[in-house]
Each structure stands twice: as C-alpha cells, then as structure tokens.
C-alpha cells in the first residue's frame, strides 16, 4: 500500500497525529531531566493510548485506561516522587547512567526486530470496523472469564495488603 493511499483515509491522519504525540511524550518520559515532567509526560502518552483504544472500538478499555492510569497510577507516581525526594530540578548527572549507547542499541534492535516481523506477517491486512460496548465486555467477563476475573481481584487484594505491610513503619 502506498503512503498516499494510506493517508487518504481521514482516520489515518488522526492516527498519525496521536501516534506522533505519543512517541514524543514517551521519548520525553525516558529522557527528561525533571522527574515531575517525566511523570506528567506519561499522562500524555497514556491519554494517546486511550484515544487509540477509542479508534479501535474499545470504549470500556479506553475509559478504564483514563480512570485507572491517569486518575490513579500517575497520582501514585507523583506521591512516590514526593516521598523519595527525587531531584525535581534539572539535574543531569543523577537521573541517567553515563553509558547510553548500549541501551539505545538494545532498544533500536528490539524495535527493528518487532517491526520487521509484524510487517512481514501482516503487510496490508485491513482492520475491520466494529465497536465492543461495555455491556458486551461485562457479559463475557462475568460468564466465560469469571474465574480469571476473581483471580485478578485476589491479586489486587494481595498487592494492597502487601503494599501496606511493606510501606508501614515497624513498631519498635
């Protein structure tokens, strides 16, 4: 498929804008010298992924992403940064390792491998339309996937208790 054919679809223009914003924000997350900026750039990247989920017809997952990630996880990260007193001012020597080239090589190698494999496997396979409503997911979740659902809720409970036990000060 030619790029001009691909970009002729208006949805692909939307995709391109969201993708560029996400990649820019993700690069800021891993390179920013300010810890707070890194956490806030993660919000942009996660909001972009929620937008992609809406494009893919996954309404419930998109709004769960906004609620759980942007609403809870990023706030948790900001509290973690606050409690561990990470350097919030620009401080180039403390946040990154000195040797960045090996890490860059590994990241580029991973991307090249995965992108090559998916491009060879799927080439121009079109994505069908269709929206999965929250009701559909609820039906499946409490019917076919009810045992994994309960297991996941137990994992969450265990993590909650573990977090409290770990972060609590020992009574001397």
């Amino acid at each position: 498929m030619q790029f001009t054919d691909w970009i002729a679809d208006a949805r692909n223009i939307v995709f391109l804008v969201i993708a560029l914003a996400m990649v820019g924000a993700a690069v800021m997350v891993v390179t920013s010298r300010n810890v707070i900026h890194a956490a806030l750039m993660l919000v942009v990247a996660l909001a972009g992924s929620a937008a992609l989920f809406l494009m893919l017809g996954a309404e419930f997952v998109a709004w769960t992403m906004v609620l759980v990630y942007i609403g809870a996880v990023v706030v948790l990260f900001l509290f973690g940064i606050m409690i561990t007193r990470a350097p919030t001012k620009a401080d180039p020597v403390r946040l990154d390792h000195k040797h960045r080239w090996p890490a860059l090589l590994v990241a580029l190698g991973t991307f090249a491998a995965m992108a090559t494999v998916t491009t060879l496997a799927f080439e121009d396979a079109a994505l069908p339309d269709g929206v999965a409503r929250a009701g559909d997911i609820g039906d499946v979740l409490f019917d076919r996937f009810v045992i994994p659902f309960e297991v996941v809720s137990f994992v969450l409970l265990a993590a909650l208790i573990g977090g409290i036990v770990l972060a609590r000060k020992d009574p001397e």
């Binding site: 993700a26 891993v30 561990t84 990154d96 960045r100 990241a107 991973t110 799927f122 079109a126 994505l127």
Partner: peptide
C-alpha cells in the same frame, strides 16, 4: 486502517520503554 500501523507503534513504544528501563537510575523512573 491496517493492523500493522498499531503493531509498529506499539513496538516503538515498547522499545522506548526498554531504553528507559536500561538507562534510568532512579527507581521511580524505571
């Protein structure tokens, strides 16, 4: 929309995440 555009974008984000895990020193940033 083709399926591969989402897969390539996900691969790119995953690689950026790998770079961050390897290069960051602060545990919260990891």
């Amino acid at each position: 929309m083709i399926v591969n555009q989402f897969l390539v974008l996900a691969a790119l984000l995953f690689s950026i995440g790998i770079y961050g895990v390897l290069v960051r020193r602060n545990a919260v940033l990891v």
